[in-house]
Design a protein around this nucleic acid. Structure first.
Lengths: 202, 202
DNA sequence: GTCTATATTCTGATAGAC
DNA sequence: GTCTATCAGAATATAGAC
């Protein structure tokens, strides 16, 4: 059920995938309600009615985009968890880098979780929220291990603030001119040792 | 742009203000395009056509909401700048607390800058962007003084990550059950000394 | 799989009465 | 300042031909 975004075999991009790509990009740029099916169809080079051959309705299209984005960050978390350096600061940096890499490698799909999810129709939000919660739980656990001195309240705030910092980057970071690894290192260094520390500031 | 109708009423809450309040709340909850003028009118208890007596059109309504929100955070920055503790960490904390207080005291108006601004019509975004840039410049200057060891690139990332962390709180922080001062202290402590430091924990 | 044609509903906005 | 009435356009979605 979940396979879409990687590289299966051929370079042939199906009509279905082209619709997903175009819709994700447009939802992110213009917003969900602001993007009509006609606009998506125009971008693909088909008619709006043809979209209904591939998707039940507009909501289902958005939901699938959110699911693809969630799968991408989950996979990145798995990768980072396999490396698992023993040094806490390094371990944190690997996970931050993984999250950011996923954020920009599948940009329109993952970024949709940041900006379009809050305004998604309630039914779509409800369908997508379980996967989001699961991902957040993994981070809570991770941060709890890395910073065991923090109480649950502080842990929750730290996680949400870190998410806010990382995710906001989809609105200001240009991955075509800068490296996500570099961004990850800078964010991780600040989160780990603080802005006032001169550690890691070359 | 002469959007102030000549209505020197002395009423506590004018019809105009009630429209602004309702619209700000609805834009934030449902989104701009998702909120119709009829929905706003219903919330106020009037008809949609009556809104046009107070505002030129829907875009003008959003723009004024964004301007009110920007004025609120600017005022908070002024207040924090007047106090200006000499200790860098304390100075940072005062400004973070000011930003957060403004964020929740005028919640719907300031939060609109976080979530609805990105999807605002291009003309509205263009009109609002100058004030936003000015506010960001003040923060860049502040952070440059607090952390003089950071190069411009690192400074930009630090500022944007801090904004991301602070502003994301409108989506997860409940100011009716927790104090913004407490939140500010925790975020400031992390930003200043890092998550891995035990300084200021508990 | 994509098309044309269309049904239905909702949108922002205007005109003019009170 | 708010109302009723209405417009013109755009939206999602469906039916059925090719």
């Amino acid at each position: 059920m979940s396979m879409t975004q990687t590289t299966p075999r051929t370079d042939a991009v199906t009509g279905r995938q082209r619709i997903l790509d175009a819709a994700a990009e447009l939802f992110l740029t213009l917003g969900y309600a602001e993007t009509s099916l006609r606009t998506i169809a125009d971008s693909v080079g088909i008619r709006a009615a043809s979209i209904y051959h591939h998707f039940e309705n507009k909501d289902a299209l958005l939901l699938e985009i959110l699911e693809i984005g969630m799968a991408a960050v989950e996979a990145a978390f798995d990768d980072a968890a396999e490396q698992a350096p023993t040094d806490p600061a390094l371990r944190l940096e690997r996970h931050i880098a993984g999250h950011l890499e996923a954020l920009f490698a599948h940009h329109a799909f993952t970024a949709a979780h940041v900006t379009v999810f809050p305004f998604a129709p309630p039914t779509v939000r409800t369908s997508a929220v379980a996967a989001r919660d699961a991902y957040e739980s993994r981070w809570t656990e991770l941060l709890g291990e890395i910073a065991p001195h923090l109480d649950p309240d502080a842990l929750r705030i730290a996680r949400l603030a870190l998410f806010g910092a990382m995710n906001s980057s989809v609105q200001w970071f240009d991955s075509s001119t800068s490296s996500t690894d570099d961004l990850a290192e800078r964010i991780a260094s600040t989160v780990a040792h603080g802005m006032l520390s001169t550690r890691g500031a070359s």
